[in-house]
Computed example of a mutant assay.
Amino acid sequence: MTSAETSTDTPHIVICTTGGTITASTTSDGAVIAGDSDPATAAMLDQLRSVLPGEIRVSARAVLDADSSTFGPAEWDLLVDAVSDVLADPDVTGVVVTHGTDTLEETAIALDLHHDDPRPVALTGAQRPADHPEADGPANLLDAVLLAADPVSRDLGVLVVLGRAILQARGVRKWHTTDPVAFARNSPDHPVEGLPPELERPTLTGRARFADVRVDVVACPPGSDATALHACVSAGARGLVLEGSGSGNLPPEVAGAVAQLAEERPDLVVVATSRVPRGEATATYGGHGGGAELATRGVLSAGYLRSGQARVLLAALLSTTDGAGADAAADVRRQWDRYHLYS
C-alpha cells in the first residue's frame, strides 16, 4: 500500500461494502438475512451523506455482499487487494470497510499486517439489522467515516469502530453476541517500555495469499485426545493453532501428539493459545502439556492473540516465507515474536 500524503482540506473517504448485519433485513419469521443488500446500502449511504459535514466527501465500492460468517482466506485476500487498490489513489484520505461482526477480527488483522500506509482504515458494522427500530449501523458508520477523515487517526493502522469504541486491530476480538459494544481488545494492563504498544505494529515484508495456506484451529478442552489434530495434519495443514486452557496449556494426549509431530514433521508450525478471554498465553508452566514444556518442542505462544487472529498471522507468515519444509517452518518460528501482539 502506498504512503502517499493526502490533503485534509476536503477529505475523501471510500467505503468498501461487504454486506453483513449493517445492511441486513429481517424476515417475517424473525430471521436476519445478509446479502442482496443493494437497496439497504444505497439507503445507508443516503442517510450518511445527510448528516456528514459538508467538507467530507464519501464514495462507495462494493467488494462483497454476504454474511461474514461465510468469509474465509479467499475473502481476506480479496479485501486486502481492494483496500490496497483504493489507497493507490493519492486523493483518498482514508478507507472505511463495512463488515459483518462474526469474522471482523480476522479481516482486521489480515488488513493490518499489510497496512504500511499512514492513512487510516476503519472497520465497522452493526449488531442490529438495518430495519431494526434501534439500528446501530448508521451511528457506527458515521463514527467510522469521521474517524477516517480525522488527521489524528493517521499512522495508527487498521481501527475497529463499533458502539462508540475505537480499537486497534491486533488483539481485538468479538466479546459479545448481541451487545452494541461488540468488541474488546486483549492487551497488557500496563504499556511496555519504549513506544506505546499500539504503535508497535510491524507489517509483512511481502503480500500474503491466505487462500494458498492451510492453517487449522483445534479446540483442546480438558481430557481431549489428538483425533482432531491428526485429522487436520492429514488434511494438509501447514500450521496448527491449538486452543488450550490457562496460559496455553494442553491436555496430555494432545501434548504427546505434539511431541511426536515435533520429531516427525519439523515442517509443521504449532501455536498455542488460550480459551481464556483475557490475558497472555505464555510458556510458563512446566510438566507434560505445560507451556514451558511445549516451548522445548518448538511450540509458539500466541501472546495476546486468540485463535482467530493467531490463525491469520500464522497463515500470513507461512505464505510470505520463501520455500517450504523444515527450513521455512524454522524461519516462521524466528519471525513469530516480531509480529504477535506485544512480544
Rank of each mutant, 00 (worst) to 15 (best):
G256P: 07
L48Q: 13
H230W: 05
P53T: 02
T203P: 12
A329K: 06
G194M: 06
P90Y: 11
E106T: 15
A82H: 02
T107Y: 09
D212C: 01
D117W: 00
R201G: 10
I166N: 03
R201T: 15
P202V: 09
H132R: 11
V92Q: 07
E55K: 09
E280L: 13
L204S: 09
T8E: 03
P138A: 10
R333H: 14
D67C: 00
N140R: 01
V241T: 02
T41I: 08
G30L: 06
D143E: 11
V145A: 04
S59D: 03
A43Q: 05
A122D: 13
A330V: 06
V86K: 05
E134T: 11
H115A: 11
T178Q: 10
A169H: 00
G248H: 03
Q335M: 14
T70H: 14
T8Q: 02
P151I: 02
P191F: 05
A219M: 04
L123V: 12
A208R: 13
A62R: 15
G223M: 01
R173I: 04
S343M: 04
A40G: 14
D46L: 08
A4F: 14
S7R: 10
D155Y: 05
L240P: 04
R49N: 13
G137P: 10
V218F: 02
E55V: 05
A110M: 00
L242F: 09
T6P: 15
A110T: 01
V215D: 12
E106W: 07
G236K: 01
P120T: 06
V181N: 09
A231N: 04
A281K: 02
P151N: 05
Y304Q: 06
P251S: 07
F71W: 11
V217C: 01
S274M: 03
L261R: 09
Q127A: 12
E134R: 14
Q168V: 07
D38R: 12
S234L: 04
P151Y: 05
L159R: 04
G323P: 02
V270F: 09
E253W: 01
V172H: 01
T321F: 06
P180F: 00
V254Q: 09
A34K: 07
I33H: 03
L204W: 03
G171P: 02
A184I: 14
H12Y: 09
I22S: 10
D327R: 09
C220V: 05
V95W: 13
T227M: 12
V254W: 02
V58E: 03
G239F: 03
R57N: 08
Y342W: 07
C16P: 00
T282N: 05
T27N: 09
S69E: 14
R311C: 10
L79K: 00
L240F: 05
T26P: 14
Q335Y: 08
G256S: 10
N186C: 01
A40Q: 15
V86R: 05
A126E: 13
D179T: 04
H340N: 08
S50D: 15
A88H: 10
A182D: 15
S37V: 12
V96R: 07
P151A: 02
L159N: 07
C220G: 07
A182S: 15
F183Y: 14
A139P: 01
N140T: 07
E280W: 14
V258I: 12
V181Y: 05
S69V: 13
G246V: 00
G236L: 02
G248C: 00
V213C: 07
T21H: 03
L123Y: 13
V86M: 03
D337A: 08
R238S: 15
